[in-house]
Design a protein around this nucleic acid. Sequence first.
DNA 1: GAGAAGCAGACTGTCGACAATCTAACAAGA
DNA 2: TCTTGTTAGATTGTCGACAGTCTGCTTCTC
Lengths: 245, 245
Amino acid sequence: MGKLDFAPIADTTRRAEIVALLRRAILTGQLEPGQKLNELRIAEQMRVSRAPLREAMRELVQEGILTSIPYAGTFVIDVTAKDIDDAYSLNKVLDEFAIELTWPLRDQRFFDELDRRHEAVKQATRDRDTTRQIETALQLHGLIHEWADNSVLLETWQRLTSRLQMYFALHQRARKEPVPDEDIHETYVRLLKGADMRAAQSHAREHIGLDFEELLAYARSLEQRDSKGAKADRAGPTRNRPEAS
Amino acid sequence: MGKLDFAPIADTTRRAEIVALLRRAILTGQLEPGQKLNELRIAEQMRVSRAPLREAMRELVQEGILTSIPYAGTFVIDVTAKDIDDAYSLNKVLDEFAIELTWPLRDQRFFDELDRRHEAVKQATRDRDTTRQIETALQLHGLIHEWADNSVLLETWQRLTSRLQMYFALHQRARKEPVPDEDIHETYVRLLKGADMRAAQSHAREHIGLDFEELLAYARSLEQRDSKGAKADRAGPTRNRPEAS
DNA sequence: GAGAAGCAGACTGTCGACAATCTAACAAGA
DNA sequence: TCTTGTTAGATTGTCGACAGTCTGCTTCTC
């Protein structure tokens, strides 16, 4: 028999597609932080009953980008400066760990994939497609986590990434100029190809820190604005989180 | 008006209670790894319809202790030696980070809570209650993550803990003698109260390593046994994970 | 007897309807 | 005018039933 490996066919349940749709809507900022998701309306728009929609929402709640309050509703999570700070500081630790694990596993296929993803970022930058630029940049950074051969690490990073992507989208959407960021990733890629692991680790930490400071400042300005009243329609969940212990 | 703070009342939806029930059943080993969860049977036993049960199961899938295959069923995750290895190595990194964050925040309340949880472990040990011993030991180790004031870290650790608790339960259930482990935590607690952060960090790494080796050896022996046939009724999910990208 | 086609049976996925709960507007009383 | 009780509307939580899919057995053919 032939040695051809077939890729598994796509999961074809309504629930899975709803999850993908909702996740994309949230991560690209089409659904704003704090916004309430009306089950009936969304179900009608998607031509789906509420059952699979609700199951999809439960998944996204556990994924950390939605939050649910019993009998009140399900909301897109609110972005606080502290959340961003927390996520980034943990991300640094994970990056360092991922580089350590990936380092001895690097091979030609790794370098090729690294270049491919780097090229995708540059392409998105040329196209002035900010949404895609965020996506591709995160995919570039995700390579070390995928390559590290530690499923728990990968899973953790992906969860963190969801949130970071949300924050970035919020940020990018807010600022006027589409995007400057010419080629910050150049050094990152070069170091990952090099021989000095420590250098790669500390650069990852530095580099991430840069975008971060700007994002954090933006988040803080948002909070200042919000706290001065004018809370708009973004219903503020005031009760406890649904996560039981 | 008075300054009394009321705690938020308990979330009282069937779904939340089902989640708690199922999680406990899985973490204590009442539901074995690989076992399939029959929706109809469980729903009848709990006197609940399938809707909230299914939603609860979606949450636990995202929590990482169940795995779902469309049109085939939902299963308790299988424990592989690699999973344990992955989880533990990440756990070390997280512990180190948590100690770093917690260190400057330690105060009298921290030390009191530390002693309280340490005492709970010793009590469970005296009672020869292995399940509770696992629970309390993990709670003791969780304190640094709770105290670190980083919600993302805490969430990540709790997710990891779920899995570790499962593995521990499996292990404890298997070995004959109830439990030796007199007071390994004594040093850990003392170092956390001390002045040398590095020492505390490296001890956390060492200490965790101990239990780990034993657990890992057990997992490997399990896999050897399984691969020699006799796969029992534990239906092995052979298709792809449901997690779409 | 071996292998393919077809056929129940069981189970998961989805739907529409009902029950429980919350919110906000309104009325009544001090 | 402020507080409290009431009520209607909207929304979420739950239920029972139906449809789609998989699995294992049976049957038929060679």
